[in-house]
Design a protein around this nucleic acid. Structure first.
Lengths: 182, 182
DNA sequence: CCGATCATGTAACGGGTTACATGATTTC
DNA sequence: GAAATCATGTAACCCGTTACATGATCGG
């Protein structure tokens, strides 16, 4: 499971509580990185049960209690073993770029769409893509400013490049469709 | 569910049986596009139950029976409604490029890896990526040869461009890591 | 005769999402 | 007084994967 490893990785850096994992640590990469409650809290409880992390309840005068989790040596070891191992590194070979992109799946059948509608759909995709790209650039600026580890920046840069490639492709597609309309 | 719509889209073009959907129609895009049995056959049965497709058992003298499915007007309508609608087109906004790429997830923690090991990992990713790119090019050639609809080719071209962008990024990462080793 | 291919299916599992539930505090 | 934020959690569902099961035919 990737979520568990991500949690261990975060706790490897410093102990913290669930809500913080969710909101603080990743909010600047994307507004919400998106570890959802339904997974986060059960995962924390299970990691504790398995002895990978320990819980300490922090009572606050203001607001609800926090459950502060710390990684154990056992958890740390498991995390490093996962990181060093091959797990999850070659499985993306056959499962593809376009199964993950629902719009692309639809594109397989674009010849059934009336050209005007198709054009509008592509334009909508372009504007979504541009919005996302802007988000990425904002995140990049903010991370640069906060002096985040350079390799985290680098990951974001790949995101930007992939997004740019997709946008360029959409623009090309738009041209083709426009030519068909005329 | 995307698989159901893909099946409807395929049957919209011509009636066929399950095994053919699995092997023929997509084998050239990737060796296996990867609709798996556990999903394909139940989906076909359910689509039939819902009245979107009809089954006709074709008895073969040689080999097992085939279940030949055809799309019904109701199914056709549902397919076109899905295609024309907004469903599945804006959901990729927040769920991200790097949650889908397990290697990138690991990269978040690359500073915990000994540089030599990291270098080997990146090299492995590059060689996997190059292999995949070659597959794509082969598929492209074969599709050109078979005169597949040009927009299907275009989808594959995006795949190639995304793969190239990822490879270029990996190469850049490799350079950074190499510099650190020296 | 062995393994691959054709052809259809079921069962169990795993991982992720949504929605729901609670309750306090802060902000408008 | 309402809405947002902090903080934790559960239950139900959906989608997808793997593994298993069956049995026939064809090529080496």
């Amino acid at each position: 499971m990737s979520v568990k490893h991500m949690i261990l990785g975060i706790l490897q850096e410093a102990p913290t509580h669930g809500y913080n994992i969710k909101k603080r640590l990743y909010r600047n990469i994307l507004q919400d990185f998106g570890i959802n409650d339904g997974q986060l809290y059960p995962a924390l409880n299970q990691l504790e049960k398995e002895g990978f992390i320990t819980k300490e309840v922090v009572i606050q005068e203001k607001g609800p209690n926090r459950h502060r989790y710390s990684i154990t040596p056992k958890g740390s070891q498991a995390f490093l073993l996962w990181l060093e191992g091959d797990e999850d590194e070659n499985e993306s070979v056959r499962y593809d770029f376009f199964r993950k992109d629902r719009f692309l799946l639809k594109c397989n059948f674009m010849h059934y769409l009336e050209p005007g509608l198709l054009e509008r759909k592509i334009l909508a995709q372009i504007s979504l893509g541009e919005k996302k790209l802007k988000d990425f650039h904002n995140a990049h600026a903010s991370m640069t400013h906060r002096q985040v580890k350079p390799h985290r920046l680098q990951i974001l840069e790949l995101g930007i490049q992939l997004q740019e490639a997709r946008l360029k492709w959409l623009q090309g597609l738009l041209e083709v469709v426009k030519r068909e309309i005329k």
